[in-house]
């Protein structure tokens, strides 16, 4: 798995998480702005270093993190994770949160 593969996988899971969070209608605009900002950051990581091959432990970490957020059903908890998950991905990729 490359950095680009990892970011693509993470962004797909992030989109699903966003869909779950949008049930909190009062926060709809915040959710759009929040996810746009974090998507932009993750995409920048892929643009800068996309072809780098990842240690298998990092690939597994991305998969495990995606599985974790895939289990979230509570929309308020989903909002918590919208601001946390991108940092988790960045840390796994060796970046600052």
């Amino acid at each position: 798995m490359t950095v680009r593969d990892a970011v693509d996988r993470a962004l797909a899971a992030y989109a699903d998480l966003q869909g779950g969070a949008e049930d909190v209608e009062d926060e709809w605009m915040y959710i759009q702005d929040l996810t746009a900002a974090h998507r932009e950051r993750l995409e920048a990581l892929a643009d800068a270093d996309g072809d780098r091959e990842l240690d298998p432990a990092v690939g597994s970490a991305i998969e495990a993190a995606c599985d974790e957020i895939g289990r979230i059903r509570d929309p308020h908890r989903a909002i918590d994770w919208l601001s946390t998950f991108p940092s988790v991905v960045a840390i796994a990729l060796g970046q600052e949160p």
Binding site: D55, A57, V58, S60, A61, A64, A65, E68, I69, R71, I72, R77, D80, W81, T84, S87, V88, I91, A92, G94, P97
Partner: peptide
């Protein structure tokens, strides 16, 4: 961030977090 992720509350399985934070 690790502490925040765990306390966000989803899995309470220690092995899951060890897998998610290999660094």
């Amino acid at each position: 961030v690790l502490a925040r992720a765990v306390m966000n509350g989803e899995s309470d399985d220690e092995a899951t977090w060890r897998a998610i934070f290999p660094t």
